[in-house]
């Protein structure tokens, strides 16, 4: 049953992006934030016994009356079944005054940031009238292999970020806060013990034997490939095909939107539309959240 609960909890809704600015000394650079990753998994739809698509809705826990967005508020459970209601205005009001600013007061060597901290990547796209300051910051950071560290608030959550430059484009990598990282002793790992040189040597030999360059084939999602194969086979045999009425496009982090995103980005970056960079439409349509249920 846990499976069902988790699957049902996935919120659908408009995905809003953050706009604000990067400050670097007294230089202010307006930017917009876009996800640099696509959600994991395949966009499977739910179909009911009548072969019509399934929709979700919220209902009153007591009389099952259907609820609109206006009937729903946010609450924090302070004890079992007891909630403190918190409004969006209240959450916004306690945002730090400079929450719309990513103030780069500290720069560190990029390779000093431990991968354990990285959480998600976003592209920062120039959103102001000119892109000169943006290009300047990106160029200098990339050349000097530096990342700017700052915090900012987005959608009622504070993030620690590293701002990096890659190929002239600024990226914000959200990092976990230090108190979100456990230490080996928190986990209960034994004290580091010294290995015998003979044992180390054995492993070194094996490591050397399998030392190779990174191959991105290693990172392919074989589950997604198997699923696509199955779908293609059933499609060929015209097996289990259902027609569903056209749905209003879901403004989620869906695949179609990612293709659009590349266009948006290309446009804002002042280049050609990235048409040739499009993924094949079939694959692009093939993603959204599904696999979370057993993570």
């Amino acid at each position: 049953m846990a499976e069902e609960a988790e699957e049902l909890e996935q919120p659908s809704g408009v995905r809003s992006f953050w706009t604000g600015s990067i400050t670097f000394g007294l230089v202010t650079i307006p930017v917009a934030l876009y996800s640099a990753t696509r959600p994991r998994g395949i966009a499977l739809k739910m179909i009911g016994p009548d072969e019509a698509p399934v929709q979700r809705r919220y209902v009153c826990p007591k009389d099952e009356k259907v609820l609109d967005a206006d009937d729903i508020i946010r609450g924090y459970e302070i004890e079992k079944g007891k909630f403190v209601v918190v409004s969006d205005d209240e959450l916004e009001a306690i945002e730090p005054r400079k929450s719309r600013e990513i103030d780069l007061k500290v720069f560190v060597d990029v390779d000093q940031i431990d991968p354990i901290y990285f959480e998600r990547a976003y592209f920062l796209i120039p959103a102001g009238g000119t892109n000169k300051a943006y290009r300047l910051l990106a160029e200098v950071m990339e050349k000097k292999k530096q990342a700017g560290i700052a915090t900012f608030v987005m959608r009622a959550k504070e993030y620690l970020v590293a701002i990096l430059a890659d190929n002239g484009i600024l990226r914000a990598e959200t990092l976990r806060f230090a108190d979100e990282i456990r230490k080996p002793e928190d986990v209960g790992l034994p004290k580091v013990a010294k290995a015998t040189p003979a044992d180390v040597k054995k492993f070194e030999t094996q490591i050397a034997k399998h030392a190779k360059k990174v191959n991105f084939h290693d990172f392919l999602d074989d589950y997604a490939e198997r699923l696509e194969k199955l779908v293609a086979a059933k499609e060929r045999k015209k097996e289990d095909i259902v027609q569903a009425p056209e749905e209003p496009p879901e403004a989620e982090e869906g695949g179609g939107e990612v293709v659009d995103l590349l266009e948006v980005l290309s446009r804002s970056l002042g280049g050609k539309t990235g048409a040739q960079k499009r993924r094949p439409p079939r694959k692009a349509a093939a993603r959204k959240t599904k696999t979370k249920k057993r993570a």
């Binding site: 009911g48 399934v54 809705r57 919220y58 206006d70 909630f83 986990v187």
Partner: peptide
Amino acid sequence: AVQDHSVRFRLLHKTDKQPVKQQLVSS
């Protein structure tokens, strides 16, 4: 190695402040 410390909110029904229920319906 990581523990999430985000504040988690629940969606509540405005009038009785109880968690809303989700329902699946045929479109």
